[in-house]
Design a protein around this nucleic acid. Structure first.
Lengths: 334, 334
DNA sequence: TTGAAAGCGATACCAT
DNA sequence: ATGGTATCGCTTTCAA
């Protein structure tokens, strides 16, 4: 492989000049630049990443920590990953993929070895054990999610409290007075991923404010889980005219179950979901929903990381405002 | 951060001794080793990846190229990714994530910059433009899939021809004489990802051998696509008693459509799918299927890559034998 | 069994 | 506007 000296020799300049042509960190005459670039192309020169990292203490690599558990929604994760990789590439960075199950050790390994410039961590829990570790690292990190104490760490997420609020307002605006939340599976609450609680808060408090009767139940996956959840709802509150679904796995079995029971959507019951846009539109019926903006969140995470690398300190957590999209599953109560 | 010299000083040895303790490339007295290891722990020393790569021309990083297109099945991809990352970690390697849409340039970039030791490439097409580029790289690569000319490149995949064969035999064994294949979307065939054709070959030729009437149609996504596909099948062959589905997106709408038409599974029509195990069991009805062994394929890909790095040349393509699992959707014809 | 020192291939400071 | 060179932190050959 050609080295920077080979290029320098071929262009009749010094190695440092080649380096400066590449980095643009100092003025170079047009003529010299042209010769150097020709030599680079000629020799198919690619700077050696390791040598660069050693000399500059910059790797141009971001770590991305993804959850690989089965209880989290796979397509959404892939959307985040796609967004992060794409945004990173747009900023001339590559992405090293870590899995959450390596835990704190994985973070310390890649950071300690200076394999990455910054870390982006998905699926952050309220009192995530990794947070103290992240604070200790030499590299900055960006969390996707909102832990209890985000102090000093950059965070991005959908504003789930506002999402709950927005949906309840929307339904109340349509005239619904009795609504129910089909929540995530119990483990999500147990694990303490804050989004579930934030959503629930927004949902519950807004319902109270608006004088809407509301009940919320977690929902186990599968048809049985859905039936159990609906039974719980019915037992607690009769005459529910709208279901809010914050559980993608439950969506399909739920629609199924409603059809089996002969309840038409939206004539007999309205349904509003929180899920990525494509699942909302891919289902048998186009769901009215608040989209989970995976692409925006991922992109923003990368931008925040870049900002931190440029010395712009972590601002307050960035909570993206929800957008409710009316599709075919929401109408006034019967 | 502590460097190898810091460790050496703390342990009262030379830097090279520390290096040898770490690499195990030459005998070290137990006593010295202990002192060095104590110093390493004490100083929380992590070797600098860039420096290491520079000195040894080994990065301990594998590139993984994934398709991010929407027309490929997302959960399956995640399974491959999970398997590769896990297997790589087990061999003390990390994974750099590239997207297919960067094309040849992405491969040349990470290979040229010596960011990785080897590449694993998913979603390989029959005459993939990336293949000549891969051959030119200094680093070895492993393909997941089977191109027209795999010469000199390591390949892993499910044996799709055998899969088609196996399924037809199974149905014929149950007594089916008229069967139909609901294939992937037309774009999959157009793109020339070989698995679709290999499967079709196995399906068609085995049906012919066994004297089973068979028809095959691609299937566009969504309910409309499924209905069009079924219409095409009916027009070509009447009395079909078994459907073979090689299209995950179509699975759910298909089951839906069959129910709407009042055709019971498996009493009126048998269904055999080719899909990952978890989607086969997650659907409303547990599908008889041949599992796509993403985990095995991913793990094997990493092992092949390691082999290539150790100088063990690429053997013939590794095509994994299919396993048909009988569940609830297969019975003798009515 | 251990040490000394020469690279590996860039960057960036100090000169001119 | 350009060049020379110390430096980054490690691996590995050569010596002892």
């Amino acid at each position: 492989m050609a080295t920077i000296s080979d290029v320098a020799r071929a262009a009749g300049v010094s190695a440092s000049t080649v380096s400066y042509v590449l980095s643009g960190r100092r003025p170079i005459s047009a003529e010299t630049r042209a010769r150097v670039q020709a030599a680079i192309a000629e020799l198919r020169y690619h700077p050696h990443a390791g040598a660069r990292a050693l000399a500059s203490s910059r790797t141009s690599v971001l770590a991305l920590v993804v959850p690989l558990r089965v209880d989290v929604n796979v397509p959404v994760i892939m959307q985040f990953v796609t967004a992060v990789v794409t945004a990173a590439r747009a900023q001339n960075h590559d992405v090293l993929l870590l899995t959450k199950d390596e835990g704190t050790a994985g973070l310390e390994r890649v950071a300690g070895a200076t394999m990455v410039d910054a870390l982006i961590v998905m699926d952050v829990e309220c009192r995530d054990v990794r947070i103290p570790a992240l604070r200790r690292l030499r590299q900055p990190s960006v969390l996707i999610g909102l832990p209890d104490d985000p102090d000093g760490l950059a965070c991005v997420d959908l504003d789930f409290a506002a999402t709950g609020r927005e949906i309840v307002r929307h339904l109340a605006g349509h005239g619904h007075r009795r609504i129910a939340l089909v929540g995530p599976t119990p483990v999500v609450y147990q694990r303490g991923t804050s989004y579930a609680e934030r959503f629930l808060d927004g949902f519950t408090s807004t319902a109270a404010e608006l004088g809407v009767r509301a009940v919320a139940r977690p929902c186990e996956p599968g048809g049985d889980g859905v039936r159990a959840c609906l039974a719980g709802i019915d037992a607690e509150l009769s005459g529910v005219s709208a279901l809010v679904v914050h559980n993608e796995e439950a969506l399909l079995p739920l629609l199924d179950e409603l059809r089996v029971r002969g309840r038409r959507i939206p004539e007999d019951v309205s349904v509003v979901a929180v899920c990525p846009r494509d699942v909302a539109v891919a289902l048998p019926v186009r769901l009215t929903s608040v989209d989970i903006p995976a692409h925006e969140v991922g992109t923003l995470a990368v931008e925040l990381a870049m900002g931190l690398l440029d010395g712009r300190g972590p601002a307050a957590p960035r909570l993206l405002p929800p957008t409710l999209v009316e599709r075919d599953t929401c109408a006034p109560p019967p």
